[in-house]
Computed example of a mutant assay.
Amino acid sequence: MDIDAYLDRLGVARPAAPDLATLRLLQERHLAAVPFENLSSHLGEPVVLDEDALFEKVVHRRRGGFCYELNGLFAALLRALGYDASLHAAQVFHADGTPGPPLDHAAIVVALDSGDWLVDVGFGRFARHPLPLFSVDPQLDPDGEFLLLDAPHGDIDVLRDGEPQYRLERRPRPLADFVPMAWWQTTSPESHFTQSLTCSRPTSQGRVTLSGDRLIETVDGVRNEVRLLSPDAIHLAYRVYFGMTLTRLPVPPGESPLTSGAPQPDTALT
């Protein structure tokens, strides 16, 4: 891995030591610089869970991704920097409070001298700072109050503002374990990733999200939404808010990207 190129993507200098302060900075910068997005599903692009392919997409093409991509690649960076970082599967809770299927999500656990810490840069709105897995107390974060509770079989339930988010496995997983579920998430008409189009990242005052032609900005708790009326305006929003210069726009849900001709991998540059 070209560590310096990845750190440049995050706007971070090479750290002196793999400690908690550096981990916190890396997580904050990753969330701010690399958007959570599912554009590949709407561009006719395959999602390849291979570290080289992910590096090409996120670092060289300056794109984002979803959980398996972002946490898979970030875990590799952390290991390259000397951290003991492993991927862990999670079941995302449904609205009715029941957990979803196994391997529905991938998160990172980093082992430090102080204990194990949950790191997640691929869940959309989530904690901006590492969460100690060994703490049973509520944990305040810029994006909410988090609580980690014991669950069956030694798993951990993660709650934000009292709402269950996901159930985390304690056993580590290789990135390859997530390939079948990643394929389902990006291709099945029943997956919410194929039913919706999103590109989102936190900001210093809230969050910015581009969903098709809807640009949504939350500033100090106030939500503002505008409709972008032309393809040029949408291209500009991707470039200004997410640093991505797309060669073509993703196709909205309900329309197959394959109808516009053979898909080519998109590029995104600053």
Rank of each mutant, 00 (worst) to 15 (best):
A5Q: 06
L7T: 13
D8I: 05
D8N: 09
A13D: 15
A13T: 09
R14K: 15
P15A: 07
D19Q: 12
A21C: 00
A21S: 12
A21G: 10
T22P: 01
T22D: 03
R24Y: 06
L26F: 10
L26A: 15
R29T: 06
R29I: 05
H30N: 03
H30D: 02
A32M: 15
F36N: 04
N38A: 02
L39P: 00
S40T: 04
S40L: 01
S41A: 15
L43Q: 01
P46A: 15
D50G: 15
E51P: 01
D52L: 14
A53N: 13
V58N: 08
V59R: 00
R62Y: 02
G64Y: 00
G65M: 10
C67H: 09
Y68A: 10
E69L: 10
L73S: 01
F74V: 09
F74A: 06
L77V: 03
L78R: 05
A80M: 01
A80D: 07
L81N: 05
G82N: 05
D84H: 10
A85V: 09
S86W: 12
Q91T: 09
A95L: 11
A95H: 10
D96Y: 10
P99T: 07
G100L: 10
P101I: 00
P102S: 08
H105C: 05
V109M: 11
L112C: 14
L112K: 09
D113V: 13
S114N: 06
G115K: 11
L118I: 11
D120K: 05
R128E: 12
P130A: 12
L131K: 14
F134P: 00
P138H: 14
L140E: 11
D141P: 00
D143M: 08
E145I: 14
L147G: 09
L147A: 13
L148V: 10
L149Y: 03
L149V: 05
A151W: 02
R160Q: 13
D161Y: 03
E163T: 11
Q165T: 04
E169C: 13
E169M: 09
P174V: 12
L175A: 09
A176R: 13
D177A: 13
D177R: 05
F178D: 11
A182F: 14
W184E: 14
T187R: 11
S188Q: 14
P189F: 08
E190N: 13
F193V: 07
T194G: 02
T194P: 04
L197I: 06
S200Y: 04
T203A: 15
T203P: 14
Q205I: 08
G206L: 04
R207C: 06
R207A: 08
L210F: 08
L210Q: 08
D213Q: 11
D213K: 15
D213N: 15
E217P: 04
G221T: 12
R223S: 12
N224C: 10
E225G: 06
E225N: 03
V226S: 09
R227V: 14
S230E: 00
P231T: 00
D232K: 12
A233I: 00
I234W: 07
H235R: 12
H235E: 07
A237N: 01
Y238E: 00
V240Q: 11
G243K: 12
R248I: 06
R248M: 04
R248N: 09
L249G: 01
P250Y: 01
P250S: 01
V251G: 01
P252C: 02
E255V: 08
T259M: 10
T259Q: 10
G261P: 13
A262D: 08
A262R: 15
P263W: 07
Q264I: 08
T267E: 13
T267W: 12
A268P: 00
A268E: 05
T270N: 02
